[in-house]
Computed example of a mutant assay.
Amino acid sequence: MARSVAGPEIERLIQLLARLPGLGPRSARRAALHLIKKREQLLQPLGEAMQVACERVMVCDNCGNIDTANPCTLCCDTSRDNSILVVVEDVSDLWALERAGALNARYHVLGGVLSPLDGVRPEHLNLDKLVMRAADTSVTEVILALSATVDGQTTAHYVTELLSHCDVNVTKLAHGVPVGGELDYLDEGTLSAAIKQRTRF
């Protein structure tokens, strides 16, 4: 068993950093050491920023995005095209599409995808609000911008069935999104091409 070489406060910092995506124990130790060495420039401002985020960041009741305002900045943007609703799995996918700048539409965050193995059922996703928004007469197209995984495509089929009574065209992302690919890991050019070449679902 490895012995601890630091006090409990530093060990706790390392353990918390190790829980972040992409950081294992070794990377977390390096990050913690870097933060401590740059206490004034990094650690203190980071701690303050995290405290502010903890106090002020909330989930938008309308679309599911996260922001410091509710409704969020995107929902309050009057320049957006109200006729197009883009359905994404998570906020990270919304941000990826916004970085690509391929369209200026409204978004809807499901909060995950259907996954029987993980126990994620329809009632766990933000589906009721989606149906309500899609039924709005101003919406003419719903783009399913879901990952090209088995669970993502299962969810896409389920959503298509849910929206079958709504007077909207349901489309999906086309070329550029590889099978098994997740939106957050794709480059902006690939995402932009996928949006422009979308097809009917």
Rank of each mutant, 00 (worst) to 15 (best):
G152D: 04
Q153A: 08
L144Q: 02
T171S: 13
L191C: 06
K129E: 13
L146E: 00
S192C: 14
T160N: 13
T171L: 07
T155V: 05
D151R: 04
H157P: 01
N126R: 15
K172W: 05
D128W: 06
K129T: 13
E141C: 07
I143R: 01
A174P: 05
T154L: 12
R133P: 10
M132F: 12
L144D: 00
T155K: 01
I143W: 01
C166L: 09
S147P: 09
T160H: 11
E141T: 08
A134L: 08
H157S: 15
D187F: 03
D136S: 14
T154G: 15
M132T: 14
A194G: 15
S164T: 13
A194H: 02
H175Y: 13
A135N: 14
T155N: 04
S147N: 15
T155E: 01
G152E: 01
T137D: 15
T155H: 02
A194R: 00
V139E: 04
V179L: 14
A174V: 05
S138W: 09
V170S: 03
A135P: 07
P178W: 03
M132A: 15
D128E: 15
G189Q: 14
T171D: 08
T171P: 05
L130I: 08
V131A: 14
C166F: 09
P178F: 03
T154D: 12
M132W: 10
I195L: 09
M132G: 11
V131P: 00
Y158D: 04
D128T: 12
E188K: 09
V170Q: 02
S164Y: 09
T160F: 06
E141Y: 06
A148V: 07
D187I: 03
Y158N: 06
V159L: 11
A194D: 04
D167K: 12
L127A: 08
S164Q: 15
A145M: 05
V131I: 14
Q153Y: 06
